[in-house]
C-alpha cells in the first residue's frame, strides 16, 4: 500500500468531477488528494488524484476510471520523474510589536510570500511538496494559525515527456 499519483485527462463538461469522485467512494477507494483545472488542450481538464492502495487496487481504479465515457486518459505517474506541487494560504496571528519579524523570517526561509498584511494578521502563500507545507504549518502553529487553505497536489512530468505521450 503506497500513494499513487494519477493524472486523469477528462472532457471539460458539467458533472465530470462527480462522476470521477463518485466512482472512488462507491468502489471504496480513498482519495488522499485531488486537484482539478483546465489543461493545455481546450475542452479538456486535468485531474490529479493521489490514491493509496496496492497494485491490484490501483489497476482496478484506473480501469474503472477508463470506463467513464468522459475520461480521455488515465496515467499512473508514480514511477516517473516529476514535479509535484501544492499551494497553501496560511493566515497567522501577528499583532504589531509581537512576532511579526520572526514570522517574516520563517516565510523567507520557506520561500513563502506575504500576500496580505493586516493590523492583526499576516497571510503567507507557500508552494511546495506536502512535507514542506506540513513543516511550515507546524512552525507557524506557535503564533496561532487563524485559517489555513490548501490545494490538492498537482503533478507534471520532468523533461520533454508529457502525460499524453505516455503509453
Amino acid at each position: 500500500m503506497k500513494p499513487h499519483t494519477l493524472s486523469v485527462i477528462v472532457e471539460n463538461k458539467a458533472g465530470v468531477l462527480s462522476r470521477v469522485t463518485g466512482l472512488f467512494s462507491r468502489r471504496g477507494f480513498n482519495i488522499e488528494s485531488l486537484a482539478v483545472g483546465t489543461s493545455e488542450e481546450p475542452g479538456m481538464s486535468r485531474i490529479t488524484i493521489v490514491v493509496i492502495g496496492d497494485d491490484a487496487q490501483i489497476e482496478q481504479v484506473m480501469k474503472q476510471l477508463n470506463k467513464l465515457i468522459d475520461v480521455i486518459k488515465v496515467s499512473d505517474i508514480t514511477e516517473n520523474e516529476r514535479v509535484e506541487r501544492e499551494l497553501a494560504l496560511i493566515k497567522v496571528n501577528a499583532e504589531p510589536g509581537t512576532s511579526r519579524a520572526e514570522i517574516m523570517q520563517i516565510a523567507s526561509i520557506f520561500r513563502a510570500q506575504i500576500v496580505d498584511l493586516g493590523s492583526k494578521s499576516v497571510i503567507l502563500q507557500v508552494t511546495g511538496d506536502t512535507e514542506k507545507i506540513d513543516a511550515l504549518e507546524k512552525l507557524l502553529r506557535q503564533y496561532g494559525v487563524k485559517e489555513l487553505v490548501r490545494t490538492g497536489r498537482i503533478a507534471i512530468l520532468r523533461g520533454a515527456k508529457t502525460v499524453a505521450s505516455l503509453k
Binding site: 458539467a14 458533472g15 462527480s18 462522476r19 463518485g22 466512482l23 462507491r26 465515457i69
Partner: peptide, 14 residues
Amino acid sequence: ITGITLPITKHNYL
C-alpha cells in the same frame, strides 16, 4: 435523476 443514476448507468445526459 442524472445524479441518482450516476452509479447505475453506463452514461447519462442532462
